[in-house]
Simulated scan of single mutants.
Amino acid sequence: MHIQHSFSAGTELSKAKKVLIMIHGRGGSAEDMLSLAQSLHVEDYALLAPQATHNTWYPYSFMMSPSRNEPWLSSALKILKDVVDGVIKEGIDMENIYFTGFSQGACLTLEFLARNAAKWGGAAAFSGGLIGDKIYMENYQGNFNKTPIFISSSNPDPHIPLERVYTTIDILKDMQADVSEKIYDNKGHFISQDEIDRANRIIFI
């Protein structure tokens, strides 16, 4: 099970009007994600980056049955909920809470948001999709009320099937998210400058 441990940067939470929650990928770290913030238009945000135990949110591919990734998956989702609840307790409205994640972190971000659809500030998911060997619609509820969400990936991507990316986009749109997507031919599994630029134009404006 994950231990709640988050790194912070940017504006002090008690003084911030906006918060960005940053979720690292498999083998990555909270510090990696916080360094990404230097390229995003989030100068006035409080930045929070939870750290996964052993640098991995769940052990197997996000395309496996969720039960195979338990109890780590549920623990990871709870970590994210606890971070959000802590931000809300500081008086930050949900409309001013933003998310970003890469790879496994993008999958976790999208899964959390689909399970807790509401009017959030926005989200940028770099190389990710909803979690599971199939789509479990019974897990997803709420209305995004036009929350802007940017999703990007490569075609092909060694970890993220393009079909799942498109399925994720369709589901989020059905839940009333304002989804923008960009699929890059043969980009590879990393965050490109163009993805950062698009996230800044669409989400962090």
Rank of each mutant, 00 (worst) to 15 (best):
S8D: 04
D194L: 14
N116T: 11
L108F: 14
K173R: 15
K17R: 10
Q104V: 07
A118I: 02
K17L: 03
T167R: 11
I196T: 09
N116D: 12
S180H: 07
K146Y: 07
I169M: 03
M137P: 00
G105W: 10
G10V: 06
Y166G: 00
P59V: 06
Y98D: 05
I151S: 07
K89L: 07
D32H: 06
D194H: 15
G129Y: 09
D85H: 10
I135E: 08
P71H: 15
E70N: 05
A199R: 04
A46D: 02
I79W: 10
I169E: 09
A30N: 11
K81D: 15
G27A: 13
K182E: 13
L73D: 12
D170E: 05
Y45M: 03
E163W: 02
P66C: 11
T53N: 03
E138I: 06
A30P: 02
A123P: 09
L108G: 10
N143W: 02
I151L: 08
N69F: 08
G105L: 04
V87Q: 09
A76V: 01
S14E: 10
H54T: 09
S154C: 09
H41C: 01
E43Y: 12
L162Y: 10
H159V: 11
I131L: 04
D174K: 14
A16T: 03
D194A: 15
M33P: 12
H24N: 08
S103K: 09
Y166E: 02
A118R: 13
M175S: 02
Q38I: 03
S14A: 11
E95K: 15
H189C: 03
D174H: 09
L13K: 05
H24D: 05
M94I: 15
K17W: 02
N69R: 08
V83R: 03
G128L: 02
Y45A: 00
Q141N: 15
S35M: 01
D32V: 09
A199P: 08
L20M: 13
I3H: 12
G101N: 14
D185E: 13
G105F: 04
A106S: 14
I203S: 03
S154M: 07
T11K: 11
D157R: 06
A123R: 10
I169V: 14
K119H: 08
L36Q: 01
R26P: 00
D194E: 15
E181V: 06
V42M: 00
S6D: 00
A16F: 00
I191Y: 10
V165W: 00
Q51A: 12
I183T: 10
A9I: 03
K119N: 06
K89R: 04
I131W: 04
H24I: 02
S75P: 03
N145Q: 14
E12L: 01
A106W: 05
I196M: 07
Y140W: 03
K134A: 12
N69G: 06
I97F: 01
P161Y: 13
H41G: 00
H2T: 07
L34S: 02
A106N: 05
L48G: 05
S180F: 10
I169H: 02
T56C: 11
D170G: 01
D93N: 07
G128D: 08
S14D: 05
L172F: 07
D93H: 01
K182Q: 14
F102V: 15
G132W: 12
A123Q: 08
E195G: 03
V83K: 06
L48K: 06
F204R: 06
